[in-house]
Nucleic acid binder design. Structure first.
Lengths: 185, 185
DNA sequence: CGGCCGAAGTAGACACCGTCTACAGAAGTT
DNA sequence: AACTTCTGTAGACGGTGTCTACTTCGGCCG
């Protein structure tokens, strides 16, 4: 296996185990058993390596779409929403990295393609269910963006701790249920 | 004026002008005209100084509640939502800092109090509006949390750039209109 | 087969960062 | 008047990303 791939693997493990602060170029190099300058032979800098890691994160998120139930479009959409939230809570460090534009190269084509793919498939799921909003004539992709943002905010606020501190919110799923009610009622 | 206050002021200016990466202890000290070690005489570390800055951010956000229209509760709520989004877009660096738990001391009492105050006043605004969700018997504070998350996600995703890249979303306000439709329709 | 050249890895240096410690002066208290 | 506390300074240390020589190895071409 090439060094480049091992660096990405090592960085991913380090990210999951130690958090986003621990994903340092020198730390990755040490964990991978190479000298501290070796990563720069394969990546132009830290941002490029982390972009590769984040791209893998988007791919993992996209892969979850394969496991959606083959029932009604409505159930597929709610399952996808739960899956998004579950991904964020299960892989908090990866989720954080994926949306930290200061750690990642926003112009990386593979990264932006992977991110767009996630949103596009989500938009397809939204378009397939006849929500009240859709019947009111709103742009379907705008509805998808709005719902995605609601999901995303739920995940971020929960990880941030602002909702966990409030005793009334026993779990993020409880809040998600309310959100889905608002959009799909 | 005391040095401590000047450090907070300088850090706030630096944050607004240069972004969150530029808010470094040594940079703040230099901009304030003191030695690089002086800040540690007033703050236990970087996190404590940035917490003071973020606390000011929450206070500024809370202060916007004073400017809400004195019309119907519904209009007050939608105005508050627009205000939240506007705050994030107008002060992106401050908004980012406020929700970066790695830069801030989450246990700072003043900080968490200021953050809680923001959410609490928002929950009051939500409770005053007879939304379809409220009539369905959902916990009002859970509804408030859900709507707040939707707002928050909209702001974050827009600043992140994922929505701006999509040509269908001309402005964050367009997406906000859809969100408000979903909750208040 | 032999020389060569580029890719890959190493080690060291540089600037910057947060933080710690030793030191100096100023201020106020007993 | 002496002592203690507060505030600021300067230097050091370990850590970080990145740059630059220097080696080393492998494949390719003459």
């Amino acid at each position: 296996m090439g060094t480049r791939q091992r660096l990405i693997d090592t960085a991913s493990e380090l990210l999951a185990e130690e958090g986003v602060d621990a994903v340092t170029l020198r730390g990755i190099a040490k964990a991978a058993g190479v000298s501290h300058g070796a990563p720069l032979r394969h990546f132009s800098g830290r941002a490029e390596l982390l972009s590769a890691v984040a791209t893998r994160g988007y791919a993992a998120l996209l892969a979850r779409r394969e496991t959606l139930p083959e029932t009604s479009p409505r159930e597929r959409l709610t399952a996808a929403c739960h899956s998004y939230l579950d991904f964020a809570l299960t892989n908090p460090a990866m989720f954080e990295l994926m949306f930290r534009r200061d750690l990642v190269d926003a112009d990386d084509p593979a990264l932006s393609a992977a991110a767009s793919a996630v949103f596009d498939t989500f938009a397809v799921l939204v378009a397939a269910v006849p929500t009240p909003l859709a019947r009111s004539g709103a742009d379907l992709r705008l509805v998808a963006a709005s719902l995605w943002a609601a999901l995303h905010g739920l995940a971020q606020l929960w990880l941030w701790g602002g909702l966990a501190g409030a005793s009334f919110a026993p779990s993020p799923e409880a809040a998600l249920a309310v959100t889905l009610d608002a959009y799909l009622a």
